[in-house]
Each structure stands twice: as structure tokens, then as C-alpha cells.
Amino acid sequence: MQVVSISSLKGGVGKTSVTTGLASAALAAGISTLVVDLDPHADASTALGVRPGEQLDIGRMLKAPRRARLADNVVPSGWVEHGPAGSPGSSNGAAAPVLDVAVGSAYTGIYDRPDLGRRDLRRLSSVLAGAGQYELVLIDCPPSLNGLTRMAWSASDKVTLVAEPGLFSVAGTERTLRAIQLFRQEFAPGLSPAGIVANRVRSGSSEHSFRLSEMQSMFGELLLSPHIPEQANWQQIQGAAHSVHHWPGDSAKNAAALFDALLENLLQTAAPGDAAGLVRNRSRR
């Protein structure tokens, strides 16, 4: 099982879109996947088409993590209903694809503060101790470095950062890499940055072209490929609670192929060395 946090220090860069795009690729590949919606806004839960019943949301599971029975409280994504009945390429031999959700809620906000101690930081790890049936766990983090994100990092093997090719987002990504290195030293020596996803890239923008070159210079092998272009109909896809792999049209088909490649690169990423050493001095305009 690989546990990957999807993080960004800056809001509005499409972190949840990348999470759901990777979940869509995992579903299409037959990879048994759990999405943990740790953002109090719970946008990933909405986009994944969950229909919660009596199950506990992730916030209430975190309240009593040792008593939380993850298997009893996850909710199947509505995407599974829109896909094929089975996945012949499934890596775990299952008769049908698995995409479950630990449903988000505003309740998790009580943990999104900067003063969580070590015991609180282990809450999500305790909940995910019951996630052994999944090959992949994707954690959609809130856009901050407060308690929920650090709780996610404590439970993760890797952190994937999402950035737009813009000045403030690139600067925030550099700061987040340094924060990951400090967090590793104190709390999670096994954690590694899995890479950086350049999202919402506009091919005709000279500013985006410049920032992409800057990101390549700064982050080197941490900058994952392919980059994800701005998707005009992404809001429509998410609003309909559909997987991008099951949405009609060439635009969605092309986006699905990009997320397939991105997921493959992400899962094959070897744990790099010191994250701080991979962050180069940023050139100034």
C-alpha cells in the first residue's frame, strides 16, 4: 500500500482536481484505491459522487481513531457505477474496480490548527491502519501547513505538491518543500516528496512558459511530467460527479491520458534524497 498526500500551501491551484484526476486514473487501471478527503470543504467527496449514509466521516473517525473501523465507514465512489462492471487489467485480480472515500466534513476543522502534538499527529495513521485492502491511498489535504496537513504527512509515504506556473504558487512550493524537510527531520523520517505537478498550464501564456522553465531549473527531477493543462470543462465534469475517464469528448479523453501517465510516474517515483538539496536557488527576473 502506498499512501500519498496531495498538498499545496496556496489555495486555488487545483489540488482537489489533481487528486480526483489521479483517482480516476487509478480506477481505470483497476488499482484498489481509497481517497481520504481531509479538506474541511469536502470538495473531493462531492466530486467523487459519494452518497453517505450512517457511516462516520473522516473527522469523526479522527476523534476516536483507535475505535474507528475504517472498512465500515468508507463510502463507494459514485464513479464506479458509471464505469465498466469489471476491470480486466486490475492489479489485484478483483472482479470489479474499487474506489472508496473516507468522506470529508467541516468537523475536521477542529484539528486544522498549528499546535497539534505528536499524539494528535498520529490520529490519521491509526485510522489508516485498517486500510490494508487498498493498493493506493490518496489524501486530499487542505491548502495550509496546519494540523490536518501535518497529520496527513505523518501517515504518508510520499507528498505530491500541486502548483500553478505563477510567481506566488512557485514560491509557495519552494517553501513547502523546505517545510517537508523540517517535518521529516522531526516527525517522519520515512516521508519523501514524490514530485510536483504543474497544473492549469496555459500553453499560449508566455508567463506560464517562463515559470515552467523556472520550475524546471529550481526543482529538477521533482517536477513531474506530464503537465496538466487548463481544462475548460473541468468544472462541468466535477459538478456532474463523473470521472474524467468516463466523460465524453476528445478534451476529456486527452486529460484522462495525461492523468494515466502522471499516475504511472508518481507511483514509480523513487524516494529522492534531501528535499532541501533538490531546491535550487530561484532565478530572479
Rank of each mutant, 00 (worst) to 15 (best):
His208Met: 05
Pro97Cys: 01
Ile180Tyr: 10
Trp79Tyr: 03
Ala241Glu: 05
Leu116Ile: 14
Pro226Gln: 07
Thr108Ala: 14
Leu222Met: 12
Glu207Thr: 15
Gly166Gln: 13
Thr108Met: 07
Arg122Ala: 14
Thr176Met: 15
Lys10Gly: 10
Val137Cys: 07
Gly277Lys: 13
Lys10Asn: 02
Asp157Pro: 00
Phe187Met: 11
Ala44Tyr: 11
Ile139Trp: 05
Ala28Cys: 01
Ala23Cys: 09
Arg282Met: 01
Val3Asn: 12
Arg200Cys: 10
Ile139Met: 05
Val36Ile: 09
Glu214Arg: 03
Asp72Tyr: 02
Asp72Lys: 13
Leu222Ser: 05
His242Glu: 07
Pro40Lys: 05
Leu212Lys: 09
Ser251Ala: 14
Asp39Gln: 07
Thr19Arg: 04
Tyr134Glu: 10
Ala198His: 02
Gln236Ile: 09
Glu264Ala: 13
Trp153Cys: 07
Leu177Pro: 05
Gly249Gln: 09
Glu135Leu: 01
Lys158Cys: 08
Ile58Asn: 11
Ile6Leu: 15
Thr19Trp: 06
Gly195Glu: 04
Val197Thr: 13
Val4Gly: 03
Pro229Ala: 01
Val279Arg: 04
Arg123Tyr: 07
Ala232Glu: 14
Gln55Asp: 08
Ile58Arg: 11
Lys63Leu: 09
Arg175Leu: 14
Arg282Pro: 01
Gly117Asn: 14
Trp247Val: 02
Ala42Pro: 05
Gly147Leu: 06
Arg200Ile: 12
Val98Phe: 08
Ala152Ser: 15
Leu121Asn: 06
Glu221Tyr: 00
Met151Ser: 15
Ser91Glu: 13
Thr149Val: 06
Leu191Phe: 10
Ile58Glu: 06
Val279Pro: 00
Ser105Leu: 00
Ala240Cys: 00
Lys15Trp: 12
His41Asn: 15
Asp157Arg: 02
Gly132Trp: 08
Leu121Asp: 04
Leu263Tyr: 10
Ile228Pro: 02
Ser144Asn: 15
Ala102Asp: 11
Glu186Trp: 12
Ser45Met: 01
Tyr107Gly: 06
Ser32Asp: 07
Thr269Phe: 06
Gln236Gly: 02
Ser209Ala: 15
Leu191Arg: 10
Gly204Arg: 13
Ser77His: 05
Pro165Lys: 08
Glu135Ala: 13
Ser251Gly: 03
